[in-house]
Design a protein around this nucleic acid. Structure first.
Length: 436
DNA sequence: TCTGGGGTCCTAGGACCC
DNA sequence: TCTGGGGTCCTAGGACCC
C-alpha cells in the first residue's frame, strides 16, 4: 500500500516522552538517569514511569507497595503527583508548538496534533521540521518529545509510536517519506493492539479473526470490520489506509460531563465523613462547570466499598438526581448531592470511594436562567412568569399548569396538562405559543 | 382488548483513551 | 497495610408517543 503523499492533509502528532516523569526532572535534574515513577492519589500506584522504570519492568498502574523490591535493589524513586506542575508545563509546550502551525489541537495533557501541510515550503522536509520541533521544545521547556507525521491522525499516532520505539529515527518518523515496501515490513512487526482505538478486548477479537499485526488490519476492508465491530473501528481502519475521517478540533469543546471523585487513603464508615468529602468534590466540579460557562441539569452521586477486599462486605450504589432547573450554583448542587447521598448510604460498610458526576451539561443561557431563577427566588411573583402561567391557565384550565423539566436543558419546557390534553413548549417560544 | 409500525428519548453498560 | 481520576463514543433495549 502506498503512503506517498501527493496532496492533502498531513498531521504531526507531538507526544511528550514519559511526561510526568520528565516534568519532575526539569525541576530536579538529580532524578536524571534514575528509575522513577509518579504515583497516583494517596501514593497508591504508578501512573507514570521513566524509561529506566519501564526497562525494569514496572507496569502502568502497579501498586507502589509491590515495587518495594525495586526500590531496594535499583533505587527506584516514587514521587507524589503534582498536577498543577504538569498542567503549567503542558501550556508551555503548547505555546512552543503553536509557533510551528496555527492549526493545532491539544489532545491531552502531553499530546498535540498539528496540521502541517501548509508549512511545506518552510522546511527542506517534514522530518527536518519534526527535528526542529523536538529541539525547540527541549530547549525552551526541558521536555523531550517525539514526533510522528502521517496523512491521518490514526497513522500519526502510529508514526509517533514508531519514532518512540526505534531510536535510529532520532525521535521523528515521517510515514510518508518512508519507502512503502519497508513500511509494509515495519507494520508487519507491530501488534494490532498498538493501533489507536484498539484496546485489549478488540485486539483479542481481531487475533481470533487472524488479524495479528497493524499490516494485517490495514489490509482488511473497513466493511468487513464494520460487520464485526462498531463504526468507530471502521473509521480506524479507513484512517489506517490513509483516508482521513477525523477532523482536527481546534477549540476544545466544552465538557459533556464532569466527574470529581477520589479514593480515600483510609476507608470511612459514617455518612458524615462521606458527606464532608462529597462537599469538596461538588465544589470542585461546580468550579469546572462555571469555568466553561455551563450549567448542568442532572447530578449523580456514587459510593463504593473497597473492591480489592473481596472478604469485606461489598456495597456500591449510585443515584441520579434531575435538578429542578439547570444550574452551576455550588449550594444548589451540594444540597442535591447531599440528598442523593442520604438516599444511597447504608450503615455497616467501609467506604473506599465516593464522587459526584455532573451531567446534562449545556451552555449557561441568560434567558433560561433568569426565568427559572425568577420562579424560585421571587416565589412566582414575577410579572413575566405570571403572565405566562396565566396564559396557560386560561387555555388549559386552572391548576393544570406545571413547570416541568424533561431531558436536556435545551428542552426545558413548560408543561400544561389535564385529562385530555397535554401541551409542551420551550420557554423561549412560550409567548408565541400562547398567542396562538 | 387487541392489533402494529415508526420514531424519539433515555438509560445502562461496554469499550476505548490518557 | 498499601490498588488513580478523569474523559469520550457507541449500542441495545425499554418507555412512550402518534
Amino acid at each position: 500500500m502506498n503512503m506517498q503523499r501527493t496532496s492533502g492533509a498531513l498531521y504531526a502528532l507531538v507526544d511528550c516522552n514519559n511526561y510526568y516523569c520528565s516534568c519532575e526532572r526539569v525541576f530536579n535534574p538529580r532524578l536524571e538517569g534514575r528509575p522513577l515513577v509518579v504515583l497516583s492519589n494517596n501514593d497508591g500506584c504508578a501512573v507514570a514511569r521513566s524509561q529506566e522504570a519501564k526497562d525494569l519492568g514496572v507496569k502502568m498502574g502497579t501498586p507502589w507497595f509491590q515495587l518495594q523490591d525495586l526500590v531496594r535493589q535499583h533505587r527506584l524513586v516514587g514521587l507524589s503527583s503534582n498536577y498543577t506542575l504538569y498542567g503549567d508545563m503542558s501550556a508551555r509546550v503548547v505555546q512552543v508548538l503553536s509557533q510551528f502551525s496555527p492549526d493545532y489541537e491539544v489532545y491531552s495533557i502531553d499530546e498535540s496534533f498539528l496540521q502541517v501541510d501548509q508549512m511545506r515550503l518552510l522546511w527542506p522536509s517534514f522530518t527536518a521540521m519534526g527535528k526542529a520541533i523536538r529541539m525547540r521544545v527541549r530547549q525552551w521547556t526541558g521536555i523531550p518529545v517525539c514526533v510522528g507525521l502521517a496523512p491521518t491522525r490514526t497513522l500519526a499516532k502510529l508514526a509517533n509510536h514508531i519514532a518512540k520505539k526505534n531510536p535510529q529515527f532520532g525521535g521523528v518518523f515521517d510515514l510518508t517519506a518512508y519507502p512503502s515496501v519497508d513500511l509494509d515490513i515495519l507494520l508487519s512487526s507491530i501488534d494490532v493492539g498498538e493501533v489507536w482505538g484498539v484496546g485489549r478486548r478488540i485486539a483479542e477479537k481481531l487475533h481470533g479473526m487472524g488479524i495479528h499485526t497493524v499490516q494485517d488490519l490495514r489490509r482488511t476492508s473497513p466493511k468487513t470490520i464494520r460487520a464485526h465491530f462498531s463504526v468507530v473501528m471502521e473509521r480506524t481502519v479507513t484512517e489506517l489506509q490513509g483516508n482521513p475521517c477525523m477532523d482536527l478540533e481546534e477549540v476544545a469543546p466544552a465538557k459533556k460531563q464532569i466527574i470529581s471523585s477520589k479514593s480515600f487513603g483510609a476507608s470511612v464508615a459514617t455518612q458524615e465523613e462521606l458527606m464532608e468529602a462529597l462537599a469538596t468534590y461538588v465544589s470542585r466540579a461546580a468550579e469546572k462547570l462555571r469555568a466553561q460557562h455551563s450549567v448542568c441539569g442532572v447530578l449523580q452521586v456514587f459510593i463504593h466499598t473497597n473492591q480489592f477486599r473481596p472478604d469485606d462486605p461489598q456495597y456500591s450504589n449510585a443515584v441520579t438526581i434531575p435538578l429542578p432547573y439547570p444550574t452551576s450554583d455550588t449550594r444548589k448542587l451540594a444540597s442535591a448531592a447531599a440528598m442523593g447521598l442520604r438516599a444511597i448510604f447504608r450503615n455497616g460498610f467501609l467506604y473506599k470511594k465516593c464522587g459526584v458526576m455532573l451531567l446534562d451539561i449545556s451552555p449557561a443561557g441568560t434567558i433560561q436562567r433568569s426565568l427559572f431563577d425568577a420562579v424560585e427566588e421571587n416565589a412566582m411573583h414575577s410579572a413575566a412568569i405570571m403572565s405566562v402561567l396565566d396564559g396557560l391557565n386560561t387555555r388549559f384550565g386552572r391548576d393544570t399548569v406545571k413547570v416541568a423539566a424533561a431531558g436536556t436543558a435545551q428542552r426545558w419546557i413548560a408543561r400544561a396538562e389535564n385529562k385530555s390534553q397535554c401541551f409542551t413548549t420551550r420557554w423561549t417560544e412560550l409567548p408565541k405559543a400562547i398567542a396562538n
